[in-house]
Nucleic acid binder design. Structure first.
Lengths: 132, 132
DNA sequence: ATAGGGCTTCCCTCAACTGGAAGGTCAAGG
DNA sequence: CCTTGACCTTCCAGTTGAGGGAAGCCCTAT
């Protein structure tokens, strides 16, 4: 398969696939004309990467996941540990966003949103948060 | 005040303050020796920026907020609209994270996490998601 | 005079791509 | 046979919001 075809099949832009090759995540063969040639195994890897990225794993985490995926002697504990690390990262981000949301929603709620200049949002941003 | 002092007071690294000057968010004066000289107004702006960034507003949104902050003839509706836009962005990110979390937590839950290679997490990543 | 801290600019690096330019390749149609 | 258009190639630059570090000036204290 050429890059366009795997791109379609894996659901990744061709640019992204070239980038993944650049950083050593996949290594397709080359045709005589210089075109990348992908085997089924490459497509599987790319689809794997697409899903892992979709779950928010970083490229480096994906690299590790891919290595574990291909290591028949892996311990599932290693995979689980990585996934749990990432789960904790997600939880941290969600907590951060929830806190932002809480403060921001309060400010928005307090703002009349009319033609007048008085704005509790700007006031809130211009002074130390309550509780400091 | 020199940059070190406003850095302390605003809670922003000196590097960040220089960067904000670079991109035109603030424009401190200069002493004869080339040092940046910050007035109280600059400090207020920087603290404002620190809080807005802390709520997750992008730099460009901060630029707009700052302009509104300094515009006596603003309509609070404009501020509120921007804040609501950002609130929607936060909600979108939270929803995305929640979905990742849901899928990932399922996989983690299904994984024994022992010395054996069998791993539902890797299986989940290597095949289309249920519901596709 | 020198040591230290603070300040300056400049350029590189990060994640994870995306866009675009310049040009090679290939199959189909006139 | 030539052209057109779709596909592919490489390379370079830009994105967001800074952080790191080098080389070198400035200022104060001893």
């Amino acid at each position: 398969m050429n890059i366009g075809e795997v791109s379609q099949a894996a659901g990744l832009p061709a640019k992204t696939i070239r980038y993944y090759e650049d950083i050593g995540l996949i290594t397709p063969l080359r045709d005589a004309n210089g075109y990348r040639r992908f085997a089924q195994a490459h497509l599987h890897k790319l689809a794997f990467l697409a899903r892992a990225r979709g779950l928010g794993f970083s490229i480096e985490q994906c690299r590790t996941l891919l290595a574990l995926y291909e290591d028949r002697a892996r311990a599932s504990a290693d995979v689980k540990a990585l996934a749990e690390t990432h789960l904790a990262e997600i939880d941290a981000k969600m907590a951060e966003l929830a806190e932002m949301r809480r403060v921001l929603a309060d400010l928005v709620h307090a703002c009349a949103g009319d033609h007048r200049p008085d704005c509790p949002i700007l006031v809130g941003l211009s002074q130390p948060a309550k509780g400091d």
